[in-house]
């Protein structure tokens, strides 16, 4: 039976009003906004949707949801289970905290390895918290699997993977052998709305919780300790908009003044 693993993530609400978004520059942390709860990353949820569509097409498949994050991150797993996924695994450990894409990928790859046998790993194209979008590629690299990014359509037939992927100027369709890692883009369409019965069933489902020890990865490879990147400064950029009207008697005069101004500002 086809086994698909979907990596999901709970993120600070990307639709937090800009006026409410605040960071603490001293601790280099994003401050939670009162009354605004974290939400599941929509790209990752589309990965779950892609898996469900594959299952609808092939008839039988197992879908496991994997997340890395604190207790509260379980909401994303529960949401994916409510959509129709079968099992959930959550990686929670102090050792995972504050990791960059590399450290996180090591933990995810180890968990995926532990979930073997699997055929397909589905992720969102990028999470809207840091918008880096490289973790799935690193996971694929660690597991020595093909990686196809920004999918708009994912199909599995006769043991092969067909992926339509989004390019800047169109689409391309590629094939790969299984197992593989695929990241899904918003062009896939809308994720399904969970049926109430499934929401209730998901609420009752147990989500396995694995620590760093369960993965058998040295904690020096994980979290802040295993990160290759370091955060120098976190701040909200100040956007200064200055509006100036160029006056002139005639259109020619206005244009001349505008050109002079632009040259003065070294814009042309």
């Amino acid at each position: 039976m086809l086994h698909m693993i979907c990596c999901v993530k709970q993120v600070p609400d990307p639709e937090t009003p800009a006026s409410q978004f605040k960071v603490d520059e001293a601790t280099k942390k994003v401050l939670p906004v009162p009354g605004i709860q974290p939400v599941p990353d929509e790209y990752a949820i589309l990965g779950v949707e892609a898996a469900l569509r594959i299952r609808d097409a092939v008839g039988e498949a197992k879908i496991t949801i994997l997340t890395l994050g604190p207790e509260a991150a379980r909401d994303a797993v529960k949401h994916a289970l409510a959509m129709g996924a079968d099992e959930g695994v959550q990686l929670t450990d102090a050792a995972f905290e504050n990791g960059d894409s590399f450290a996180t990928a090591r933990a995810l790859a180890a968990a995926i390895k532990k979930l073997e046998p699997f055929d397909l790993v589905l992720c969102g194209r990028q999470a809207p918290d840091w918008d880096v979008g490289v973790t799935p590629s690193i996971v694929a690299d660690i597991l020595s699997l093909p990686c196809i990014t920004r999918a708009s359509n994912v199909k599995v037939s006769d043991g092969t993977l067909q992926v339509e992927r989004v390019l800047s100027d169109g689409f391309e369709t590629v094939e790969a052998s299984l197992p593989a890692v695929v990241t899904v883009s918003n062009e896939l369409g809308e994720p399904r709305y969970p049926q109430l019965k499934q929401i209730m069933a998901a609420a009752k489902k147990q989500v396995s919780v694995w620590s760093a020890g369960d993965l058998g990865v040295d904690s020096s490879q994980l979290g802040a300790a295993g990160s290759l990147l370091s955060l120098d400064r976190l701040y909200v950029p100040v956007q200064d908009v200055k509006c100036e009207f160029i006056e002139g008697e005639t259109p020619e005069e206005s244009a001349e003044k505008l050109a002079a101004k632009l040259r003065e500002e070294k814009l042309i």
């Binding site: 609400d13 639709e15 937090t16 009003p17 800009a18 006026s19 409410q20 906004v33 009162p34 009354g35 605004i36 709860q37 939400v39 599941p40 809308e190 709305y193």
Partner: peptide, 26 residues
Amino acid sequence: ETAQATLMQLEQRGHPWRGTPLGRTS
């Protein structure tokens, strides 16, 4: 689709005004 988006919005954000530039205390 718009009903689904609204319900999802209500579930996740507790209000129906997706993309509002305002917070509850603005």
